[in-house]
Design a protein around this nucleic acid. Structure first.
Lengths: 214, 214
DNA sequence: AATATATCAATAATAATATATCAAAAATAA
DNA sequence: TTATTTTTGATATATTATTATTGATATATT
């Protein structure tokens, strides 16, 4: 039984992976938490605590081996395996995901797209075939699907999620502007663009509210 | 001395706005924190604490008036004003943002798009003209620009951010996979798709559900 | 080889966040 | 009207997250 890692830690892990990748590119062989903390603008304590949630990757007096650490964090992030992903909805957002090369490099393979519009059936985006929604059941039964990206209108997203979950999909990457209700063994990761924009807006209006003023 | 609201609270505000909108559509006139907490799956305490960061919107023995509360939270989120937004990069992601109708409804008006590819100059997406990057300076000087959405490759994003900031843009909605370095009076809101996907992947091996968007 | 320095992992201390409690105000019922 | 119930906003408590400290162990220096 793995101990539960908190989501604040989870949120930080990809950032570490990103910076370690950069260090690797720059041929940095080893790094201390102190040095990394300067580069990343966080405390060295937090870095060590975060890493130690997943294992002891460092060595006293030496620091962390960049290559080893990045690989270990990669494993934590599941990047040592490949994940088959389908995209439901071939609107602009669906197409953006399909043609985003970085995912493939990290082991997230888009195996199919689906769209309600049958006129699109058979056409391809970035070599990925668009299929009719009627084919969803058959496709998932024949092919392993680890992740489904949902880029359909919010009005039909819950219904779609139910359909995907009933077919055994355990991870949903949700771009529809609502909270999906799913069984507790299904993971939902939201990317809610409107929410993000509103946060930006909120922070814009409050940024000048400084301590001594009022 | 007005205390700064913490980002954990900021992160939750758009979700309240969303649920209150739903209640309004369902013609619910008033609601208690207790009832809302059941619907939203959080504690009533947290809801009251969150709201009280921005004002006293409720009434003992009555609860919250849905219409009033939603309007107040709307103001907190800056939705009572309009924000002029430009999009830099007219790839799939840029086009997805440009054609996403919901932003406009919430007062975020896309006034122009820019792309390095001069062949696209003059063409339109969702009635928004694509301009050459050469026109950036001129456009920003002539037109108020509140927010710039950055959907260019990571390699050129920092350089672009510097350019935008030097032209006086104070808010960046960043989709490029890197941490932008900007003056402290500039707000950066990241939407890092790869990071989000990695978090999903991490959670898949460790089971949990939660929201994204920092 | 001996000593000094670097640095982690674990633990303790502090700070931030979330939840529970409660007095007072307002609504509702009697 | 008066009593009872509801429900907030404020405050107290509990929990979680972050930062600092410490002891152990590796590396570097003399």
């Amino acid at each position: 039984m793995k101990k539960d890692v908190s989501q604040v830690v989870v949120r930080r892990m990809p950032r570490y992976y990103r910076y370690l990748g950069q260090l690797l590119e720059d041929n940095v062989e080893r790094i201390s938490s102190e040095r990394l903390s300067e580069i990343m603008n966080v405390t060295a304590s937090q870095i060590r605590q975060d890493f130690n949630n997943f294992g002891c990757f460092g060595q006293q007096g030496y620091g962390y081996n960049v290559k080893f650490l990045r690989d270990e964090i990669g494993k934590v992030l599941g990047l040592d395996k490949t994940h088959n992903m389908i995209i439901i909805g071939s609107g602009n957002l669906g197409r953006a995901l399909a043609s985003h090369g970085a995912f493939h490099k990290q082991g997230f393979i888009v195996t199919a797209m689906f769209d309600i519009d049958k006129k699109l059936s058979g056409t391809k985006i970035n070599d990925i075939e668009i299929r009719s929604m009627d084919e969803l059941e058959g496709f998932i039964k024949k092919n392993r699907v680890d992740i489904a990206a949902i880029t359909v209108p919010a009005e039909v997203a819950q219904e779609l999620a139910d359909r995907l979950v009933s077919l055994g999909v355990k991870a949903l990457w949700n771009f529809a502007q609502l909270d999906l209700e799913v069984d507790s063994d299904v993971i939902v990761q939201n990317v809610l663009l409107s929410d993000s924009l509103m946060r930006l807006s909120l922070n814009m209006t409050r940024k000048r509210v400084l301590d001594d003023n009022d």
